[in-house]
Design a protein around this nucleic acid. Structure first.
Length: 421
RNA sequence: GGGGGAAUGUCCCGAGCGGCAAAGGGGGCGGACUGUAAAUCCGCUGGCUACGCCUUCGCAGGUUCGAGUCCUGCUUCCCCCA
């Protein structure tokens, strides 16, 4: 559907060219709104953790492009829905969080948004409302009378997400069935409060979003629009943002800029072009050139991807530092003093610090048992020398010129152990 | 209300006639090969003061030298009949 339509607005042109669009309820209509500079779009975010992770980055970027092309972005916090516990994940229902936790999480999440969006009171400034503001005030009877009457169960039953569950004989709880009503109502409420006329989200949200569009029509709002992005996986099919080491968090206190840079640097070849378009703001012709690089050359493109993505989140300076640290570590084989480090008591070295304990302390392994196994498999190194003996201990003699000991797990993960002065 | 199933290694799926730290996958981590990629091959994938000790199979008891396995009660989920 996107192939035949040529958008005239900057907003849709950018989103189309860069591959953000999966489905749209009315491209031409939305394009017209965008051309008039009258798009206010929202995307709902859970506040189940103190930070968002890369999985949400695509949505954040869409809001960012919207603002850059003259629209008003509205990241909506799901404080109200979090309070209920969203059951939409088929098997596990999310745990219900306390109010303090939710508030705390909102603070952490807002910090991330402020890196990508400009907040304020201006017409095109971003705002971050919380659906708890209206959802918690709902009265069941009033809601049924004013809103519930507009939902067509017939229509809801025909939605893919519902149909699938019924066909498979899987349980679909009433709460879950209602969840889309609440989400639809959010859209209407946001339209009334802020003139919001577009909801965006991942492709899995399509059903919920168009239900909101429909509700708006029945409740007399101006025309609303739906726009979804493709579900993002790596070329090998893995979900974005989850690794064994944990989620790729966006907050720096949960994942350092260095680790964030490394995440992007380790992108698969096949994903480089796509990721450059989605997660950087580089010109498309430049991306096309980088994407065309063959063999080992494509590593250059990965470095640029890492640096640009890192700069957007953590700032140019942090990104450059990570780039330089990586260059020293991987290309020159020098021990950069800027690698992540942890401090230990100087006295610990005096009496000799066991390697097992040291690696656990550094967080490279979870337990001494794992450290032992890694040693057996040749995976641990101290100052770039493979550890052969698990009874080895570290002393002041192991300190390098810059006064620290380099611990490595595999070829990629390094931590400097530095005694406290 | 009646009848029948299910719950396993704190990532997931999943075997398990009383001797079990518990088969097999997936995923992940490490090694080899490379380019900090992919594919492929190999190893590892409860904890510890470590040739030994401790803790794991929904929860709580019981039988037994010994229980994931047998018995009783409970919780949760699923299916069939009403």
């Amino acid at each position: 559907m996107t192939s035949t339509f040529i958008p005239r607005s900057d907003f849709l042109r950018v989103l189309t060219e860069r591959g953000y669009i999966h489905q749209c309820s009315d491209l031409a209509g939305l394009d017209e709104q965008a051309r008039k500079g009258e798009v206010t779009a929202y995307i709902g975010f859970d506040c189940t953790a103190t930070s968002l992770h890369v999985g949400s980055l695509l949505q954040i970027m869409m809001l960012r492009w919207l603002q850059k092309t003259g629209g008003k972005p509205v990241p909506l916090m799901g404080g109200g829905t979090t309070r209920v516990g969203d059951p939409s994940g088929k098997d596990e229902s999310r745990k219900i969080l306390s109010l303090e936790d939710i508030e705390n999480n909102k603070t952490g999440i807002k910090a991330v948004f402020s890196k990508f969006l400009t907040f304020g009171d201006g017409a095109k400034d971003a705002i971050m409302p919380d659906n708890a503001e209206w959802l918690t005030k709902l009265n069941y009877i009033d809601f049924l009378r004013d809103v519930g009457r507009h939902f067509s169960v017939n229509r809801m039953m025909s939605m893919d997400s519902v149909k699938m569950r019924l066909e498979r004989d899987q349980e679909l709880s009433f709460l879950e069935f209602n969840y889309m009503c609440l989400q639809s109502y959010d859209f209407v409420e946001l339209n009334r409060r802020y003139g919001c006329n577009l909801q965006m989200g991942g492709s899995d949200q399509w059903g919920n979003i168009v239900t909101g569009v429909d509700l708006g029509r029945r409740m007399g709002t101006p025309q609303l629009y739906a726009l979804t992005s493709p579900l993002l996986t790596t070329a090998s099919g893995a979900k974005m943002g989850k690794t064994a080491a944990g989620a790729i968090w966006l907050n720096a206190d949960m994942l350092s800029p260095w680790d964030y840079w490394q995440f992007w640097r380790n992108t698969e070849d096949r994903d480089v072009g796509r990721f450059l378009r989605l997660f950087t703001e580089m010109p498309l012709d430049e991306i096309a050139r980088l994407e065309a690089l063959q063999g080992a050359e494509i590593n250059e493109a990965k470095k640029i991807l890492a640096t640009e993505a890192c700069a957007m989140l953590h700032g140019r300076e942090q990104a450059e530092r990570a780039t330089e640290t990586a260059r020293q570590t991987f290309e020159e084989g020098v021990t950069s003093t800027d690698l992540p480090h942890i401090h230990i008591e100087a006295s610990a070295l005096a009496s000799g610090l066991g390697v097992l304990a040291a690696f656990v302390e550094a967080g490279l392994v979870q337990s001494t048992g794992e450290a032992r196994r890694q040693i057996k498999g040749g995976g641990l190194r101290v100052n770039d020398v493979i550890v052969a003996d698990d009874r080895m201990s570290l002393t002041a003699a192991d300190l390098n010129d810059s006064g620290s000991i380099k611990l490595s797990l595999g070829k990629k993960r390094h931590i400097l152990l530095t005694p406290k002065a």
